[in-house]
Each structure stands twice: as structure tokens, then as C-alpha cells.
Write a protein that binds this DNA or RNA. Structure first.
Lengths: 297, 297
DNA sequence: AACTTTTATCAGATTTTCTGATATAATTCA
DNA sequence: TGAATTATATCAGAAAATCTGATAAAAGTT
């Protein structure tokens, strides 16, 4: 019904050889198979491609353009097929990560990974924990890194490290030991609803304080840090996110008594995900890198 | 045994649709046919291309690169096939022509033809009559234009116009009526052996003179003209070749009495040549152009 | 829990492709 | 010149590939 790959290969061989018989031998087929394949191709294209001159088939004016146009494509397709078969380290991996991880852990990891696997492209998607879980469930990403909790029968999760949320501010008066309830009426800047960081914090303190004064909600940790540095607000965000600012003295880690707000970083993927060599290597590499990143803090 | 065009098309459709069932409907095939085609492709490539997540097939990290690489090639192949079928005016025509025709008739014709048929490439080969005949017999050129005679059962020939050989010089003393035998001892510059022009001239005068003083033999008509203009030698070459120089007074056409050395221009092609629409149009166009060119002289 | 939807797989039907024999046509050789 | 050789074309039937319809399996929906 349609032109086949095979016919094009036979065509190109005949083009090169000029003799059906040679091509037949070369390809381990009968002469009649070659003859019929060429005829069929000509029928389908509605033009003769060869002039039958003496005992040879020579490309005619139409066949020449066809050869010229088709030949590089077939070569390329053969290359792709061959290359694809023996290239375990080639692919396009889609990764999703929630905000803190995207901003503070992933960039150096991806960068390092891509240096080690130059034929793998990594697409990085950002989203809150809920978004990332949904993307994994849809198969829109291969693997997700999240800060929150999941509980879904479709999803396989692996803990890859601990994170700690700390209370920070630029108010020097708070550079001392305090109890959390003495802070509950100060102006707090938190991440927007749906954020894992926010949920974990609010969940953790709900037994310790009866309310908290949420003054501002922002989508990005970086914006929160900017606000903190220019006002006397407080926030509770990942230790990793404020590592540099605390070291430089731009922000102060408030020493809240009995406050140990930890959470896990999780790697998640779909239970039906086929674990290709490439995928496994990526996961292995990334887990190792994240562990070493966390250790540094 | 090998990956087929069909499988790649099915693969790309599944890629787009995500559902085998939809693709099956779309392509008018059963769902199992699609399923088996995909499985077979995966087997041949030795990698899974899709993750089977819930009721859908979603590209995995390997499938994504394959899709990215293969998709443009398949699109291009489909385009070529479609375009080729309905493009009567596209091709690569190989033309051979002997020296005089190549130099003085073909250039404007080819140029004009290519303006009218922008999708046809013309390859022009030069050679003496014998060479051109052999190229036609081998099918290495589609059509030849020659000045000499042929007689070969394989070759179809058509007269396309008359040419006249004239005696020319820059010696002003010869601007008068003369007999050929009064010139035989002057210095003649002729084309090399094997040239149609030379053969026709020598054959024509062999009954009129007993010898001729060949002073110099050159491969190209233009070189002969250069020599003529800087010495007082004579030559006998095509009227067409010296048209401009005679008009400008740079060369003189010697009025030799009883000298009418004519020959035919022939168009030749192989008897087994398939006369495609494109070929016929080219031949028609070229014949008309040559006739009009010759008329101008 | 029953129904629906979707993919996977199997055996057999269908279609395509290939083979082996033969026809045709031209060239080479005796 | 005529026989042998060499090449392509074509045909009928064999072999292989592809497709269908039925059924299984698995998950979502009602």
C-alpha cells in the first residue's frame, strides 16, 4: 500500500550497482524480488526511476532527484537505528522538583550530571509537591524530588535525605534563645498555600501555638528572603535556603527552644515506570549528589 | 527483520495520541495491530520506548530522543514521496554536447530553460561527437547534441538544424573572392583530430585540394579565434562561432568560390530511453530554442 | 461489585514479499 | 550465423509479515 523502507534500500543499492543481479546477491535475495521491488516503487511513485538500457538499469532524470533527496534520509535513519540500539547513555529525562530542591539542590546536580552524561538532556520542571506528584502519576515526568509527604499506591518513594526548617529574621534583637509562643504575634512571611515548607511548618507548630500572624504569603523562597532582610519579619524556611545569608550574618537563625522541625526529601517515580539502565544511573547519581550536598550544610 | 516505515509511523502516531485505541481507529487498523507494531519496534531497538502508565502509553526517556530524531525524517520522507508523485517538472537532466554546440548554442538555452523550469537541474557535459555518442549508449546522459554523423542501431537521432563552416582570417588582403586551392599553402589553424568540425572540413575539401598546410592544431575554437586575430593564419570553423567577430570586423569571412561546407546538428538519445513528460518537454524546448538561435545567424 | 476502558497476547486469516521457473532480449563466443 | 551467456521481467505458488477477532489482564468508573 505504501512505500516501504525496504524498497528504498533496494532502490539505493540498485542505484549504486546498476545491476539487479548484483544487488540480489548482495542482499541475499532472488533477482525477481529486486525486480519486483523496483517496479512496485516506480508504480507507487507514478514515475519510472530507471531507464532499462542494454542489460543495466540507469537512473533517469526523475530517479536522479529521488535518489538525491532520499539517500541522505535513509542513511540518517540507519544511523539513528544503529546508534540507538547501542547507546545506553542517551536520552531525554524529565525531572520535576519542588521549590526548595529546584532552587538550592538541583542546579549543581544537573550540571554535574550533564558533564558526566553528555548525551542525556535533562528537562527540569518546578512545582509544589502536589504538582510534582500529579506529573509523576501522569507520566509527564520520569522522576520527582519533593519535600512533602505522599501516600499514593501508584507512587514509589525513596527518602533521600533530611532537611531542617529554621526560623530566621534580620531582627538582631532575636539573636537569643526564645520559645516559639513568644513569636506567634510577630509578622510572619510564609510561602503560599500548597507549599510543602508551609504545610510542614504549620503542622509542626499547631500544637505549640494557637494561632500565628501570617503577614504576607509569597511564591518563592528568594522573595521571602528579600523581605526578611529589609523588614523585621520572621519566616520558617529550609536551612539550605538560608545557609549563605546566615553565614554572612545577613539573616539570623533564631534559637527557638524545643524546635526541631525536620522533614524528608523524597525521590518519587511511578510504580509502572520501566527502570531502564539510563534511568537507574540517573537515580543513582542524583541520590549520591543530594546526600553529599546535604552533608555540606 | 528490519524496522519498517510503517512501524515508525505507528510509533509517531502513538506518541501524539497516547492511546493505542485512538491510533487504531485513526489508521483504520485493529488495536492489536498497533500494539504488536509498537512491541516489535521496541524489540528491534532493544529498548522500551513507552512507559505503560495506567491506560496510556507515555514516552519514556529513551522514546523521547527516538521521537525527536526520527520524527523530522519521517515527515521529510512523506513530503518527498508526495511531492515527487505530483511534480512532473522536477528532475536532473544530463545533457552532453559537442564543442561548438556547448560553447555557442547551449549556454543561453540552458539558462532560458532553467528560468522556465526552476525545479529542473541540468548537468552539461562536453565532449567530441564520439564521446557524446558513447555517453548516450551507456545511459550516462539523457540526451546529446552533436555536430557529426552517427549510425548506431541503439541511437535515435533527430536533425535539429544546419550549420555552415566558413573560412575566416584577419588578413585584410583576403577580403575578396578566391578559390580554395589558392589558399591551401597558407598557414591553417584547425581543431585537433577527432573533432567533428575538422573532419567535416577536411572531408569536404579533399576532392578540391591535394593537400593543406596545417600549421597548428588546437582543442578549442576560442583559442583558434585568438590565434587568427593575432596572425594571418586561416581556419575553417562554424559560422556561429565567429558570428560576433565577423560582425565587428575583427575577422573576415573569406569569400571562397564554390565552397558550401554544411553539416547537420543532431539531437540523439537512446532507443530504450523512457520518454517522460519532463524529458519530452526538455527536448521540445531545446529544439525550438536551437532553431531560433540558428535563425538569428 | 459490576461495568467500562484500555493494553497485551494468541491463533488463524490476510496480505505482502520472496522464490524458482520461465520468457525475453541482447551480447559474446565459436 | 547460431549457440551460449547474461541480464531483466513476469508468473504462480511458497514463505513471511502483518493484521484481525477473540480473550485475558488490569485499572478506573459507576
Amino acid at each position: 500500500m505504501d512505500i516501504t523502507f525496504r524498497q528504498l534500500e533496494i532502490f539505493l543499492n540498485v542505484t549504486r550497482e546498476g545491476h539487479l543481479t548484483n544487488v540480489a546477491k548482495q542482499m541475499g535475495l532472488s533477482q525477481s524480488a529486486i525486480s519486483m521491488a523496483i517496479k512496485d516503487l516506480e508504480d507507487k511513485l507514478e514515475h519510472l526511476l530507471f531507464d532499462r538500457i542494454n542489460k543495466r538499469l540507469v537512473l533517469n532524470e526523475k530517479g536522479r532527484v529521488f535518489e538525491k533527496e532520499v539517500s541522505p534520509l535513509i542513511k540518517r535513519l540507519n544511523d539513528i537505528e544503529h546508534e540507538f540500539r547501542n547507546s545506553a547513555n542517551k536520552g531525554i529525562i524529565r525531572v520535576g522538583a519542588s521549590t526548595t530542591i529546584v532552587d538550592y539542590l538541583m542546579p549543581p546536580i544537573i550540571c554535574n550530571y550533564m558533564n558526566n552524561y553528555p548525551d542525556v538532556r535533562v528537562h527540569l520542571k518546578e512545582g509544589n509537591t502536589k504538582d510534582i506528584v500529579q506529573l509523576v502519576k501522569d507520566g509527564a515526568i520520569d522522576v520527582g524530588f519533593i519535600e512533602g509527604l505522599v501516600n499514593d499506591p501508584e507512587i514509589i518513594k525513596e527518602a533521600i535525605g533530611f532537611d531542617e526548617l529554621v526560623v530566621v529574621t534580620s531582627d538582631v534583637l532575636l539573636d537569643k534563645e526564645v520559645y516559639i509562643d513568644t513569636l506567634q504575634d510577630r509578622r510572619w512571611v510564609l510561602r503560599e498555600e500548597g507549599s510543602g515548607t508551609r504545610d510542614v511548618f504549620l503542622n509542626y507548630i499547631k500544637d505549640k501555638v494557637d494561632h500565628i500572624n501570617i503577614f504576607l504569603e509569597l511564591g518563592h523562597t528568594e522573595s521571602i528572603k528579600s523581605i526578611l532582610m529589609s523588614t523585621q519579619c520572621l519566616s520558617c524556611i529550609s536551612k539550605i535556603a538560608v545557609k549563605n545569608e546566615v553565614a554572612d550574618g545577613k539573616l539570623i537563625k533564631v534559637r527557638v527552644k524545643n524546635f526541631e522541625c525536620k522533614r524528608e526529601f523524597l525521590m518519587i517515580y511511578h510504580k509502572d515506570k520501566y527502570l531502564s539502565e539510563l534511568f537507574n544511573k540517573f537515580v543513582y547519581f542524583t541520590k549520591a549528589m543530594i546526600a553529599s550536598q546535604i552533608d555540606k550544610i
